[in-house]
């Protein structure tokens, strides 16, 4: 019996014994089976700034996990060894959703991130883990490309506290040619997160020659401002040659600084530069009085002047989840 997976916009039709594009949803005897359910292959304790989330419990430890598999096939993937692998080739732990809150607490983590590959590919495991963790008072964070159909996404957002969604480019042809996806579902995922009250930060990896033109960056920032609001944090991230894109150089620092300036000129309040040490690219400033509120160096908080989520200088409320 053929099965059709309706989880993501790809809608894979899968022959018996075969798998969907994500490699982890397999037609076993006419039943669609999520073979990595309960079996993460990566489990780490990270700083929340690494996700990156800069306005969500700054300085916190976050238990981060992933299973094998991804429904996109980005040629620049930084975690391709697990995202583009078959589950039978990667060792995993057995960690059922109900054990996850206890595991997080044992590592002194009150946050859990579903990350590294894409939590929407191991959807059932993410959803059940989010349910169990929320019940235990632990916050759930999705680090995702947001390539999912709306009904399952709504269900997942209902149990999620924050998301960092990767907006890879504001271009459908980029998604088609470089990632094997399309732009529209990602834009829907971004807007839906905002509408459902999930704390949202956006990451854009800038890749030389592919999505680094002023026009591309301007369009992305303008769309963000119009649809997500000027107070949604945007992280420009530096590209390093990886996987199938080893022919391109790392993103020059001047490109990232230029992107930063464009985003600011469009009117976004919270813009950051990641994967590169810059003077102010990682710091949070008050959009009203320009006072430095949080000073960071990579993943370390050097100074946090926020008082109850407000600027101590002018009492402007800074959007985020601070404690």
């Amino acid at each position: 019996m053929l099965v059709q997976c309706e989880l993501c916009p790809k809608g894979c039709i899968i022959l018996p014994g075969h798998r969907g594009e994500c490699r982890i949803r397999i037609n076993l005897d006419g039943k669609l089976t999520a073979v990595t359910y309960g079996y993460p292959c990566s489990l780490h304790v990270d700083p929340v700034e690494k996700k990156p989330l800069f306005h969500f419990f700054p300085g916190s430890r976050i238990l981060s996990l992933a299973t094998v598999g991804c429904n996109l096939h980005c040629k620049f993937c930084q975690n391709w060894e697990i995202s583009q692998a078959d589950p039978e080739n990667v060792e995993a732990f057995y960690l059922p959703p109900e054990s996850l809150p206890k595991t997080a607490s044992s590592y002194d983590c009150r946050l859990i991130a579903y990350t590294y590959t894409d939590p929407v590919a191991f959807y059932e495991y993410t959803l059940d883990s989010c349910r169990a963790s929320k019940k235990a008072g632990i916050k759930n964070v999705l680090v995702t490309a947001g390539y999912l159909n709306t009904p399952p996404l709504k269900e997942l957002y209902a149990f999620s506290d924050a998301a960092n969604i990767d907006l890879k480019a504001y271009s459908d042809s980029f998604y088609q040619q470089i990632c094997g996806g399309s732009l529209k579902p990602v834009l829907n995922a971004l807007v839906l997160a905002k509408e459902m009250g999930v704390w949202l930060e956006v990451t854009n990896l800038i890749i030389p020659t592919l999505n680094d033109s002023d026009k591309d960056i301007q369009a992305l920032c303008q769309w963000m401002k119009t649809n997500l609001g000027k107070d949604t944090p945007l992280h420009f991230s530096r590209f390093f040659p990886m996987y199938l894109m080893q022919n391109l150089p790392p993103t020059p620092s001047r490109t990232l600084e230029k992107a930063f300036q464009i985003a600011k000129s469009v009117g976004l309040d919270y813009v950051y530069i990641g994967n590169l040490s810059t003077k102010n690219g990682e710091n949070t400033f008050c959009p009203n009085c320009r006072k430095k509120l949080i000073q960071r160096d990579r993943y370390v908080i050097l100074e946090n002047n926020l008082e109850k989520g407000q600027c101590p200088g002018c009492q402007t409320k800074i959007p985020g989840v601070w404690s």
Binding site: K31, A34, V35
Partner: peptide, 12 residues
């Protein structure tokens, strides 16, 4: 299917 079944065992 939108929601898939749980596996009996991990293939890796």
């Amino acid at each position: 299917y939108t929601i898939a079944f749980k596996p009996d065992a991990y293939p890796g």
